[in-house]
């Protein structure tokens, strides 16, 4: 994985093609302990659960899908047992799934930060965009001396940059 190529943000992040208008529904950032560091919502008409339950369900889904893909991996000989927790980068992971109403793109960094972006289902590959969002996180959150790791992210500058980038998607 090439997350540490350099600290500067690439000048022109790849923008996937899609239909016009705002394509993003919501975004989550989890740390490796499953704590939701950031939740942003742009367009979410349907809410079935309260916020805490929603984060838990999302984290649980990702965790279980990861153990499913690690076990199902048809290219590796030694897959281990189903359900045994794996370190970030270990085993076969996944980068997106699609339903008829949304597409969820997922990235996990070597430090266990999980970035989840939920968009409309017609959008293209978002792996590069997630890397760009990770770069924003490094620049505006991790490098902020006032930020203590593992606490919710509440920085206007980061949110503004994020919103700007998300608005440009698709």
């Amino acid at each position: 994985m090439q997350f540490f190529g350099g600290s500067e943000i690439s000048p022109s992040p790849p923008v996937p093609t899609g239909s016009i208008g705002n394509n993003a529904h919501m975004m989550y950032v989890f740390n490796r302990n499953g704590i939701c560091l950031l939740y942003r919502e742009w367009n979410r008409p349907l809410k079935t659960l309260n916020a805490q339950q929603d984060y838990k369900l999302m984290f649980g889904l990702l965790f279980s899908l990861k153990s499913l893909t690690a076990k199902m991996d048809p290219t590796s000989v030694e897959k281990g047992n189903l359900g045994v927790p794996q370190l970030p980068g270990q085993g076969c992971s996944f980068h997106s799934f699609r339903t008829n109403t949304y597409k969820l793109s997922f990235m996990e960094t070597p430090s266990g930060i999980k970035i989840i972006l939920v968009t409309n289902p017609r959008i293209g590959d978002l792996r590069e965009s997630l890397k760009h969002i990770y770069n924003l996180y490094v620049e505006y959150v991790v490098k902020n001396p006032l930020y203590s790791p593992g606490t919710p992210i509440k920085y206007d500058l980061f949110n503004t940059m994020l919103d700007q980038y998300i608005k440009g998607l698709g």
């Binding site: 349907l46 649980g60 991996d73 996944f94 980068h95 699609r98 339903t99 008829n100």
Partner: peptide, 27 residues
């Protein structure tokens, strides 16, 4: 089966019928 059901719960809009396509690193 359960992941398919949970994905319907997490949909931001109505009318979700579950995962159609899961793209993993190797399959």
């Amino acid at each position: 089966h359960s992941m398919h059901a949970i994905s319907q719960q997490l949909s931001p809009v109505n009318g979700c019928t579950g995962i159609d396509l899961l793209q993993a690193d190797t399959f």
